[in-house]
Write a protein that binds this DNA or RNA. Structure first.
Lengths: 122, 122
DNA sequence: TTGATATTTGAACAAACATTCAAATATATT
DNA sequence: AATATATTTGAATGTTTGTTCAAATATCAA
């Protein structure tokens, strides 16, 4: 755990000042990890589709599976990941489980990313 | 290529209307792929650190390596991915190659994600 | 031209990942 | 109780990914 603070100088440093301030401005490891985990969750087409679909309205698992054109099992595995990262929440109604978004920010993040990718004619 | 439009009904559909509108509201496959590729790039702690460091000022490869505490080679591989996704640009100055951010939106996306992850006390 | 330095590249490898399949839960219906 | 349906779970599998190492480029300096 305390290894985090050990700094090994492996390479030539060209500009000590810039390196020092860059290191200081970098968020803590835990925040970097939370951030990159959040992006990683959105970094898969299946999960992204699920999130975007749920941004409109809640859906049950088998309807989500139909929307993303995958097996219920595959979707359920992905929903577990989305649940773990607190991106979606669910409510049970008899046999059915209805999922919906758990976070307002995620929609904004996706919208911002859409503006970004639309600027390229790839 | 044209397989994209084929729809196979693998599972019980609970609510046809919701599934239909969810499918219609979903962005095209190419946009979903561009979006998830962008998030995937940010979904790795090393690359995220590089992007955040470059948000402050341009850095050469060996300084980036020191900042993220990795080998120059590992960093160069990641810079190639960031270059391919047009997230960073570079300029050569003699032996040195200086990298900087190529996109204004990315900083905003990261800031929004920071607001998101800071709301949890994980 | 020779040696030194900064960066890139390709192969290799272990770790992480997405999906499938089969089996297990959980709830509702008869 | 027995059956059917909706969902979850665990193991297995092929693929992708991040880093390392060694070698290749590229530029500078002597």
């Amino acid at each position: 755990m305390s290894k985090e603070t050990i700094e090994v100088c492996r390479e030539t440093i060209i500009n000590h000042e810039k390196v020092k301030s860059a290191r200081q401005n970098l968020p803590a490891k835990s925040e970097i990890d939370n951030l990159s985990d959040t992006f990683k969750i959105l970094g898969d087409p299946t999960r992204l589709k699920i999130v975007i679909a749920l941004a409109w309205e809640e859906l049950c698992v088998c309807d989500i599976a139909t929307v993303v054109n995958l097996s219920v099992s595959a979707v359920s595995h992905q929903l577990r990941l989305l649940r773990n990262m607190r991106l979606v929440k669910f409510r049970k109604e008899g046999k059915m489980v209805y999922y919906s978004l758990d976070d307002e920010h995620i929609e904004n993040i996706i919208q911002l990313a859409q503006i970004h990718v639309r600027e390229f004619s790839r």
